[in-house]
């Protein structure tokens, strides 16, 4: 489903060139849940962004759903982000000037779907996530946990095959952590491929995880599949 081969990613930071990823290779099969683990700055979020087509690798190759996308042009990558990938951000990243349901339905807007249809689809997801009563509240009026659920709903609006979550449990309270893990469990049951980046693996999530990839200084230091080291 997802294959990365010798990927490198460099950023220019002033006069210095920073290597965020260095010759990284990994593979995540369809329906698997993988966790990218490591301290801050280890490259796990960059890896997630690369897989999510938010940024491009400077070297190496990337396959998504059996299609090599390494040299895809920008608009093809955008189409992949829209149709195949649902991204849940660490800071939720809801747009403050829009209501909850409008935020959830943002990916549908350029597809020409009418406002009525967009609301119906958004409400369906919000109901599943127990957020329907907050549908018309502005995004900045929601609590942290509610914002996280809204962000999850937005990521799922196009029924993507791949779910990417960047530190999904770090900015919410304990009660909501349980809830998010349950959501991830449900998604895995539906056959979604899930990749989560986390600096700190929750024990309650361990049973879901098929593969853990440890990052350090932009490289993979260790990969484990179902508890076995690869």
């Amino acid at each position: 489903m997802i294959r990365v081969e010798k990927a490198t990613k460099s950023y220019q930071s002033g006069k210095v060139k920073v290597r965020a990823l260095n010759d990284v290779s990994l593979e995540v099969k369809k329906g698997e849940m993988a966790v990218l683990s490591g301290p801050s700055g280890s490259g796990k979020s960059t890896m997630l962004n690369v897989i999510g087509c938010l940024t491009r690798i400077t070297g190496g190759r990337l396959w998504l759903a059996d299609q090599e996308v390494s040299h895809f042009p920008d608009h093809f990558l955008a189409a992949i982000r829209r149709e195949k990938i649902g991204f849940i951000f660490q800071q939720f990243n809801l747009l403050s000037g829009y209501s909850t349901w409008e935020n959830v339905s943002l990916p549908l807007l350029p597809m020409g779907i009418s406002e009525k249809e967009r609301r119906i689809r958004a409400m369906k997801l919000l109901e599943e996530l127990n957020l329907e009563t907050r549908a018309d509240f502005m995004a900045n009026e929601l609590s942290g946990g509610e914002q996280q659920r809204a962000a999850i709903a937005r990521a799922l609006i196009n029924d993507p095959e791949i779910i990417l979550a960047d530190e999904p449990l770090s900015n919410i309270d304990t009660g909501h952590v349980r809830m998010v893990i349950d959501i991830l469990r449900e998604l895995k049951k539906k056959g979604k491929t899930i990749i989560v980046s986390s600096h700190d693996t929750q024990p309650s999530m361990a049973s879901l995880v098929d593969r853990t990839v440890y990052f350090a200084s932009g490289e993979i230091s260790l990969q484990e599949e179902l508890g076995e080291e690869l």
């Binding site: 999510g52 938010l54 920008d74 608009h75 955008a78 189409a79 982000r81 829209r82 149709e83 990938i85 991204f87 951000f89 990243n93 747009l95 943002l106 990916p107 807007l109 350029p110 937005r154 990521a155 196009n158």
Partner: peptide
Amino acid sequence: SKEIGILKAVGWQTGE
């Protein structure tokens, strides 16, 4: 800029 980044992250194209 952040708003535009978010829109692109959820699938909006540059042209849009």
